[in-house]
Nucleic acid binder design. Sequence first.
DNA 1: ATAAAAATAACGAACGTTCGTTATATTTTT
DNA 2: AAAAATATAACGAACGTTCGTTATTTTTAT
Lengths: 242, 242
Amino acid sequence: MKAEKSDNIDELFIDNYNNFRKSIKIILDDIVTKLYDDNKQLIKVKKSDQSIHNLKRIINTAISISNKKGYSAMSMRELSHASSLSIGALYSYFPSKDELLHIIQQYGRAAVEKTLSGALSNALSTKDKLYNFIHAHIFISEALKDWFYFSYMETRYFTGVEYNKTIESELFTESLIDSIIKDGIKKSECKSNLNSSLIASVTKAMMQDWYLKRWKYKRRNIIPEEYALECFNIIYNYIHQG
Amino acid sequence: MKAEKSDNIDELFIDNYNNFRKSIKIILDDIVTKLYDDNKQLIKVKKSDQSIHNLKRIINTAISISNKKGYSAMSMRELSHASSLSIGALYSYFPSKDELLHIIQQYGRAAVEKTLSGALSNALSTKDKLYNFIHAHIFISEALKDWFYFSYMETRYFTGVEYNKTIESELFTESLIDSIIKDGIKKSECKSNLNSSLIASVTKAMMQDWYLKRWKYKRRNIIPEEYALECFNIIYNYIHQG
DNA sequence: ATAAAAATAACGAACGTTCGTTATATTTTT
DNA sequence: AAAAATATAACGAACGTTCGTTATTTTTAT
């Protein structure tokens, strides 16, 4: 059974977004279940099915409202109404509005980690690694576009541990791209005079635009595969040797 | 006298950020003055020097607080305290918190328009035009980094006219890059099979990262010239013919 | 030049409302 | 009937905004 879950991760990294989307759904369910387990001490509702179901609803509703007006401007009454749960019921699933923000963060972060960590494993050449990584990033940010947007816009208000985790996550993603390029230079697959960390930053910026300006790409009917390929082409064209 | 102002605009587009910064300061003063004139009917304080001075202070303070916690989470008491003006005095300079947001938007938008509109005028080749445009954009977003960040993060809450203006502005900037590339294709300075609008989007995303992740580039001691040049190189390398 | 009058600017307590949260009551499930 | 989940009512704090008042500057009259 556990072997099957690992298989899902491997199946994720394919050229086709639709297949990716199907397999990520199972993973997302696993993650909410884990989210419930990890936060059992905060959640008053003990029936796990009920709890997981409502947690999902609350998280998605909160993300949806926040993306329209910002988390701080979302009132608990609004969340209550939109999620069809009373105020009292809401507070059975999290102890405070601040804590709900953390729960939402945990949810998305777990999904991203699970996706990106497997993206590089089976790739050998610099070209394949960059290709896979960019596609994995675009695909996961498409599947979780609302969370990605939410996270980008809201986590800047964090302080302390949560803030550090966000910075860390940003820099970690970059360091993965940086490593791909540095490795490519070493293996003479890339030009030798590259500023790899700056290219990594710029690459990340390009990938982020996919969920930050979702309306734009939707309006133009650009699909994830097309966007990912263009990003890959621009960067690979710039870095590759010969 | 008026000729001098125009000269300033031409002087802006140079390779050196420090010179750019000096000349933009004069322009910013002009803009706040114009801002006061345009909003005279909303502003109760009639002494123009006083009014302009305090408007500047209010705008910068509001931007600064908002960039830390979000505009909607900034209270008027906080703004009052930080700007050393009483609540009552604040409301002599704008009629409501919502309207202040619009005034702040007007302020930055005027500066950006003035800068970018002149960036392409004297450039002849595709290479020069792209070079100038990217540098102008990075330079103005460096000089007004707080406003750019503010605008990016807050305008998504806008509705109606203000929302349309934001979308329009985003698409207009892109269309300028798109035109440079399309023109380059026509003049055979660029490859013929390019998706110019998608490249334009990606280019904009790269430029935006400069102010969205200011902390990162500051930490790495990357100067505006370096970042602008890298962006230019990546894109020009991808599009140019031969 | 000086004093009186008027205009302007700044102040901050107070208003009605809405916020996040909690305590209590009701309904549903077992 | 007991327990669990949900719904409702109520709380104090904080919100944006208003407004009666005071302080300061400018204008007018002497």
